[in-house]
């Protein structure tokens, strides 16, 4: 027992404080976060920020070049497309649809995948194996094919393609969660908690789940970038979002018709998809190393 009494530290950094401090050290991750934040702001506040209605057609101003070109004008920042719609507004709404649906799909897939994976990890023997490989058949088929099958049955549309991609994302989560729960359950601190009288549910919530953040962040960002690419690919192939809907892939497909006349109609949505996916990956990578540093400094 200490013979002297010390003042207690007034401030104890919470786990999130520590993660943020470690995250801040990487400049690339911070830049990625700013870019991703910009996309999120554009998506959330698109109705307020966008200068035009994304579907309003301006017959007088077809294929106006972007503002930095010689014949461009500042009133249409990214120019207009073949129907005279403002490209900047369309891309802003496109981020909203692509990023928003991507996030929705990943959260859904994560919830389903992690619960099934945990179940598989906690079960033993054949039952565990069956649960684990329940959705494995989906992994053999590319997302695009699943989407085509679903679209063939239910018809084209953004929601139908979202179901296809969500289904395709789930098996990865199941496998990673099961493997993680398995390896974690063998460790001694689980035994220690078990000796405290914790049942399986309590073990999972209080002992395994806190350790799972790193895995979830890695898998989540990976899944998010896959989801964004897939949803725009399906939009581009006219299987997902239809061309009236401002979705990044669909905008790209629209621009393809006039690619020689107005290359910005292809380049700008393409660059947007690229930067979006890149920033997601950079932020995910930064978060992962920050979480790892938090645990082992």
């Amino acid at each position: 027992m200490p013979q002297f009494s010390l003042y207690e530290e007034a401030f104890h950094p919470s786990p999130w404080h520590r993660t943020w401090a470690a995250f801040r050290e990487s400049h690339i991750a911070i830049i990625g976060l700013f870019v991703l934040g910009m996309f999120v702001v554009f998506s959330v506040f698109a109705p307020v920020l966008s200068p035009y209605d994304p579907n309003a057609q301006n017959i007088d101003g077809l294929l106006i070049p972007p503002s930095w070109a010689m014949s461009g004008s500042i009133s249409n920042l990214f120019g207009t497309d073949a129907l005279g719609r403002d490209l900047f507004s369309r891309i802003m709404y496109g981020c909203r649809i692509t990023l928003g649906s991507g996030l929705l799909m990943v959260v859904l897939a994560m919830l389903i995948g992690v619960s099934i994976g945990t179940l598989a990890g906690m079960l033993k023997g054949v039952r565990s194996s069956i649960v684990n490989h329940l959705l494995d058949a989906l992994m053999a088929i590319p997302t695009l094919l699943i989407a085509i099958i679903i679209v063939a049955i239910l018809g084209t549309g953004l929601v139908n393609s979202m179901w296809a991609i969500t289904l395709a994302l789930i098996p990865q989560f199941i496998h990673h969660t099961r493997r993680f729960v398995r390896s974690e359950a063998k460790k001694e601190y689980i035994l220690a908690s078990r000796l405290d009288g914790a049942n399986k549910w309590q073990l999972f919530v209080h002992s395994i789940l806190p350790n799972m953040t790193e895995m979830l962040v890695v898998q989540g960002t990976l899944a998010l970038s896959i989801a964004v690419i897939d949803i725009s690919a399906l939009g581009f192939l006219n299987l997902g979002a239809q061309s009236s809907l401002p979705e990044l892939g669909a905008i790209l497909a629209d621009g393809l018709d006039v690619a020689y006349l107005a290359p910005w109609n292809v380049a700008l949505p393409g660059i947007t998809i690229f930067v979006l996916v890149l920033s997601i990956n950079v932020v995910g990578d930064g978060l992962r190393s920050a979480l790892r540093k938090r645990m082992s400094q």
Binding site: Y189, A192, L195, S207, T213
Partner: peptide, 16 residues
């Protein structure tokens, strides 16, 4: 009856 496990570092949860 309570127990102290052999490896005290492994018997502590790193994320808690």
């Amino acid at each position: 009856i309570r127990m102290i496990l052999q490896h005290s570092s492994e018997s502590m949860n790193p994320a808690v």
